[in-house]
Each structure stands twice: as C-alpha cells, then as structure tokens.
Design a protein around this nucleic acid. Sequence first.
RNA 1: GCGCCCGUAGCUCAGGGGAUAGAGUGAUGGCCUCCGAAGCCAUAGGUCGCGCGUUCGAUUCGCGCCGGGCGCGCCA
Length: 579
Amino acid sequence: MNQPLLYLRIRGSGRRIGYNTEHFGQSMSAEIKSHITGLLTRALAKVAPQQPGSLISLERPKQAQHGDFSSPLAMQLARKLKIPPVETAEALVEAIPPSDWVTVEFTRPGFINFRVHPAAKQHTAKIVLAAGERYGRSDSAGARPVIVEFVSANPTGPLHVGHGRQAALGDAIGALLESQGWRVTREFYYNDAGAQIRNLGLSVQARIREKLGARAEFPADGYHGDYVREIAEKFLEAGNTDGEDLEAVTRFAVAELRREQDLDLQAFGVRFDSYYLESSLYRDGRVQRTVQALIDAGKTFEQDGALWLKTTEYGDDKDRVMRKSDGTHTYFVPDVAYHLTKWERGFTRAVNIQGSDHHGTVARVRAGLQAASSKWERAVPPGYPDYVLHKMVTVMKGGGEMKISKRAGSYVSLRELIDEVGRDAVRFFLLSRKADTEFVFDVDLAKSQSEENPVYYVQMAHARICAVLEQRKALFAGRDPDLAAADLAPLIGARELALLQRLGEYPEVLENAAAEFAPHQIVFYLRELAGEFHSYYNAERILVAEAPLRSARLALCLAVRQVLRNGLSLLGVSQPEKM
RNA sequence: GCGCCCGUAGCUCAGGGGAUAGAGUGAUGGCCUCCGAAGCCAUAGGUCGCGCGUUCGAUUCGCGCCGGGCGCGCCA
C-alpha cells in the first residue's frame, strides 16, 4: 500500500473556544469557507505576491480522510512558479496564519486540506435551533418581486402528468426564491382564446347533439376524452335544451374545465396568487397595442399578405409571422403582450416553467419583448424572462408505458397519479430529477413497493426523531434541561460530526438550488441528511443514561428534524410525526 | 438537413477541471430482550457512448462522429 506523504501541523491551542453566535451568520459553513479563503489569501500574498487571489478555490473532499475542505491552489500555482506542487503546498501551509477554527495539512499530489474544529461544527446545531424554520433562509434578494409562471394549461382538459411536473417544479422554485428573499407571485396563464378553445366548443357541441339523438359531426382534431361527454351532460342538466349556441357551450366548457383544473391543483396542494386570461389581452386591446408597438419600433414588414416580425435581429433563426393573412394573430403575439404586462407590473425578474417542446418560442418571445419595448425608457433586457424547460414524463405501469386514461382520453391525468400513489410521493418523485432529463415515473415502484419509496425514507427520519422526543418525555420528563441550551461538546463521534457538517451545508444548498432553479438538489440533500441520521440512529442510542450526552444528542436530533422540516415543506411534502 | 437537450452500475438517476466516479433500486449475506427493521451494516456491479484535442490533471471543457428525445407552421 502506497502511503501518501502527509505533513501535519496543528494550528490553534487545542483548547475549546468559547464561540459566540454573533461571530457567525446563518451559515456556519459559509462563514468557515470565507475564513479559510482568507487564510489562503494571506498565505498566497506571502508566498506568491504577484499571483491573483482569484486562483483560490475550495472544494469539499469526497473522503473524510481528506478533511472538511480542500484547496487545489498549490497545484494550480506550481506551474506558474515552476516549483513542484508538494513544495508549493508546503510553503503555503507554512505561510498560513494560525487559526482557532481549523487545522491545516497538505498531502500529495499537492492538496491543502482543512479540518474544522469540532466546537465550530457543534455550534451549527445552536444556529439551527435558534433560527428554527428560518434556518437556511436569506434576505439577499431584498424583497424584490419576481413572477413565476407555470402550468399555464389550456382549459381544454384535465391536467396531465406533464402539468404535474410543472406544478411541482414551479411551486418549489417559487419557494426556493422566497427562501432567498424574493417576493414571489405564482401565476397561471390560461390560453382561453384561439383555435384550441374553438375546437373544445365544437367537441362538446357534437356530444350534446349525440345525446339529443341528432346527427353530429365530430371535429377532425377534436377532444375525445370522456370528460367531454360529461361536460355535455352537465350542460344539458343545467337546463339547456340544445347546444346550438356555440359560444354558450364553449363558455360553459371552459368554466367547467377551469374548475376541474383547480381541483386537480388543490389535490396536489398547489396554489396560485393570480390567474391571467389570454382572452383579456384581446378584450382590453393589449394585443392590438403590442402589434402597434412593434410596427412603431420599425421591426416589422409585410409579405404575402401577412405582417412579420424581424425576430432574426434578436437571434432567432428566421423571421416570424405575427398577423396572418386572414387578419388573426399567431399565438406568439398575445404571448408577447402577456409578458409585457409582467414587465409593466413591475416584475423585473420573471421565471417561466415550460415543457421543452416549447423551447422554440423562447427566442421569439424575447425578441418580441425587446422590439416592442425598444423605444421605452426601460427596455426589456435580452434575457427576459428566464426559462426552466423540462422534459416529458413517461408513466410506466405493469411493465409497459401507460398512455391512455379513460377519462382524459389521450394521456395519464395528474389526478389518477395522485389517487394511485399519493400526493407526497408524486411531488417528491417529480422533483427528484433535473428538469431537463426525461422522467420515467414507475407507478408500480412508487405504489406497490412503497417501503422503498425515497419520500418515506426522509419522512421516516422525521417521524423517528418525533418518536424519540416522545420517549424522552415519558422517561425523563422534568429532569432534562432545555435542549436549546444544551452543551454540545459531547458530540464528537464521527457520525455526529458528519451530521453537524451536513446541517451546516443546508443554507448553501438552498442558495445554490435557488440560483439554478433546481429543486432536485434539495431532494438529494434531504436523502443524504436522512441517510446519515438513520445510520447514526442505528449505531448510537440517543436516550442514554448520562444526562449531558443525552441532552447533546437530543439537541442534535432536534436540529436534524428542523432541517428536514424546512426542506420538506419547501418541496410541498408533508412532515408526519407518525407514519 | 439545422437548432436545443440527453448518453455515467442490470434498471432509475446524481455529480461536473482534481485524490480511489457516487446514491437509490435489483442480487447475495448479516443486524430487532435495545429510542420505530418503512431502518442499519457488508459484498457484488463501471472502457462515465466513441475518437481527437486543450490541461500538471478530462467523466467534467472544445471539436468531430454514433445513439436517443424535442423543436424547426400564416398551430398553441
């Protein structure tokens, strides 16, 4: 076995340090990182004053033997200085000023590794308990407004699993942004105008005629789901004698489906702050005004009887028709009008969650926004709005793909999935992968093997802690001190320190997930945290006889439970005390 | 054909210039007189699609292939 070279220098006195909460913000981990960066900066200034501090980077070693933080600085420097990495590392370590928080060492091939003093890690639990449900949150966005648009289904049928993925993503991304201090508005945009809606009206009308025994011609690309028949029935039950008033039928159908979609969302636990109707953009003249703004900006031209927008001037690969030769508008004109309202409503930041099959519209909408606002005092910037594009969901059941549901006709409805595997599992599952990977939802796995379902794994860690706390009440009621004030010095076991370390990472994980619109990072974090807790729980007894150790462990449990709660609630998943 | 995304363990997926590439699931074998076994521990499983380049170092970055998904409408 090839033992690596290892030089060790202990810094600091080794005594326990009286840490003070004020020394740290909400994130122990971030504080320590900046502390270490500071140490390296000073060492670098001594060893290689001409090198820029921007070289300094820190990473988290995968293996515990390499410490808590690690820097490849020496290896990056070696070439510039023409000195072997190990020697550079040694010089840097020599130059690092003493620290009460960390010890430092260097190893082959030239990493500089830092170990955080247990007392600093222990303090993390105090921070968690003091902050409670605010732990991990930040107000860095300063209450600036952001609008998150998602689902935005046409009111032409029940919501399907793709909408479910969007609902889970949008809701969680909204929560992530809130956690960073954004003032979030969740909005649903109804495409309740245009050809699809007309198509729906004709489909329902045909079913009504069928019911009445009249000759009915079903539209060629009409909606075939059973729900169309249900609406037809309801229409007649509402006292209508026939379905010849297409507008009345359509209005009725849209209202019914909006109500049904609301129920779907309610079942999923998703709420919106506002709903925006495409039809209102026509009613209040915004579509017309948008067209005029684009013409005034000089970004349009006429050809073949249609009006075109020069989207190629904004990076699109071809120009787009905005007003068809029949005088009606293509869908993207109301889209631009709609997004202009977001900007006008004061949302200088906007996030759209959409299926990746719509990615072609991104360049068009952005182009339209820039063109229409080009004469404005504050033009819409090129990258507005942000997009999160997600891939399709395939539902597997009984070894095959599940494509058809009886009611919905051509797709698996969100409601069916919730009824089948439960809301928590659907949310957790749909959030457990990056948005831009295709999703295979295995119903059999989520349902019949529910004990292997990762959501239960995390929830169980939470329930277990609740059970321990209950036990404690029964066994030691009145004899244990306040846990928030417990001395955590006894927490020095490897598993305890790992848990503390993990708790300290949470604020950074949140921040990063929010910045990348990536809720799956929270899912993975929670799985790891729960896993480390289960492992700890199996290896050590919490309710030991010695009161100081018992209190310290209980305080750690409380802190873990707090972070599990914070994370799960952010994802919209419940945190049961018993399962 | 062009554009965007994706190819990592049998399967489902993380990771994303650094040390021995990780989870879950499936397989095998252990752990309940003990706070919840919906749990834990151990073993097994890999040319990170292929090739060339950049780099001290590439699974990660660049280019080119191969394979898959989605777009490319005077549809939404």
